[in-house]
Design a protein around this nucleic acid. Structure first.
Length: 395
DNA sequence: TCTGGGGTCCTAGGACCC
DNA sequence: TCTGGGGTCCTAGGACCC
């Protein structure tokens, strides 16, 4: 398995595109630091600290605003190289992926050779530094790339796995964050080796069944997970920080509608529709609340999603009005495909005397006749949205 | 350290079904 | 009138990741 991980991704893209940013401490930020160059990292400028704090740590820091379109484009180019290397690619995020190259030994060469080539190609063709970890399992490959950063390549040979794994601190394990680290440290568990020696049941009692079993397996170097090529996104969402200023109901609602509009647009662009609408609110004290509602059918309709989100909001507004809303978010989950280009369809001629609702009913009936009930979800998703052009000819 | 934006998975209780 | 055993889906919250 290869785990390929672009270094300081957003920051590297900015340095690639603007030579003036190279060789100096710089970061991409918008309120908080999203990514920092290695020169900045050395001075303590880490992801998720505020820009203010970062400037205090490093007065000469150059902070540029994010250009998400550029990152998406760079990511696409890098993933093209991944998929040109092997069809077995599992994307983890915008800047990292697993590549299963176990079947390429005879055809192409040893994994380490392939890893070198991927690094060269990403550097030459996209102009970005990338680190690759190589190991027998996904987990080991992921840890290897983290250890090898930046701009590195590290192979963990099967004979060296335990020696590599056991001295690592537990927080190096994927899925062990602040809370779990504190719990484990309290029990005298500091390294992966300590964790491996722990009884599964004791571990599960401490951190929960699923997490306990998972960590026990990883610590004991048991990771049979194959590369999953078919991973699809399960939800699409958008959120916006609102600052600490008090917001009126009308202001919050305006933001909410805009967020839903963005989400619905992205859903339609991706040919997905969803059934579960989740409203997220964060308060001045950084506590959070969520409310969700599941619709009877999947939709990508701005109007339907807006109405749902607004209803969720109206339901909690009286109780949160004075809590100081600092963030608002909406996401739509349980996504289904609604088909894009190449789909079969129905065309109908309708006369002007029908109302829009009647016309829509007629279309939906026709879809049901032709394709059966399952297609109705798609018809509903596309049909009722005023944002989608659905020209009805006069005759 | 006074804090962005996009996600994933797990848990637990309740409603409901056979 | 009181009751077993097995299951699904929905909702809210929490931990974690990049």
């Amino acid at each position: 398995m290869l785990h390929a991980d672009l270094d300081s991704f957003y920051a590297s893209v900015e340095q690639r595109d603007d030579p003036a940013l190279r060789g100096r401490p710089m970061a991409v930020g918008a309120g908080v630091i999203l990514a920092s160059s290695y020169d900045a990292k050395r001075l303590g400028v880490r992801t998720a600290i505020s820009v203010q704090t970062a400037r205090r740590l490093c007065p000469q820091l150059v902070v540029v605003p994010p250009r998400f379109a550029a990152y998406t484009e760079a990511s696409r180019a890098v993933f093209d190289i991944f998929r040109d290397t092997t069809p077995l690619v599992e994307g983890i995020s915008i800047d990292e992926a697993f590549l299963d190259v176990s079947g390429l030994r005879r055809l192409v060469g040893e994994p380490v050779t392939i890893a070198r080539r991927v690094r060269e190609r990403v550097a030459d063709e996209v102009g970005l530094p990338i680190t690759v970890g190589v190991a027998r399992t996904k987990f080991l490959a992921k840890v290897a790339s983290a250890v090898a950063k930046p701009d590195g390549l590290l192979v963990v040979e099967p004979a060296d796995e335990s020696a590599f794994l056991h001295p690592l601190p537990v927080e190096r394990l994927w899925g062990v964050g602040k809370v779990t680290t504190a719990k484990l440290n309290d029990r005298g568990v500091f390294t992966v080796g300590d964790l491996a020696a722990l009884d599964v049941d004791a571990l599960s009692a401490l951190v929960g069944g699923a997490v306990g079993r998972h960590l026990h397996a990883l610590a004991n170097n048991d990771d049979p997970r194959p590369v999953d090529v078919g991973r699809r996104r399960a939800s699409i969402g958008a959120q916006q920080a609102l600052g600490r200023r008090h917001r009126s109901r009308a202001e919050v609602l305006a933001v909410l509608r805009r967020l839903v509009d963005r989400v619905a647009g992205r859903m339609r662009a991706a040919n997905r529709a969803g059934v579960t609408v989740v409203l997220r609110v964060r308060f001045a004290d950084f506590t959070r609340s969520t409310r969700s509602h599941t619709l009877p059918t999947a939709t990508a309709s701005t109007a339907t999603l807006q109405a749902t989100a607004v209803a969720l909001f109206e339901g909690i507004w009286p109780s949160i009005e004075d809590c100081g809303i600092t963030l608002l978010g909406v996401s739509v989950g349980n996504l289904v495909d609604v088909g894009g280009e190449g789909d079969d369809g129905v065309q109908l001629a309708l006369n002007f005397e029908r109302s829009e609702a009647e016309a829509l009913d007629t279309v939906i009936d026709a879809v049901r006749d032709r394709f059966g009930g399952a297609a109705l979800t798609r018809a509903a998703a596309i049909g009722v949205d005023p944002g989608i052009e659905m020209p009805l000819l006069p005759d």
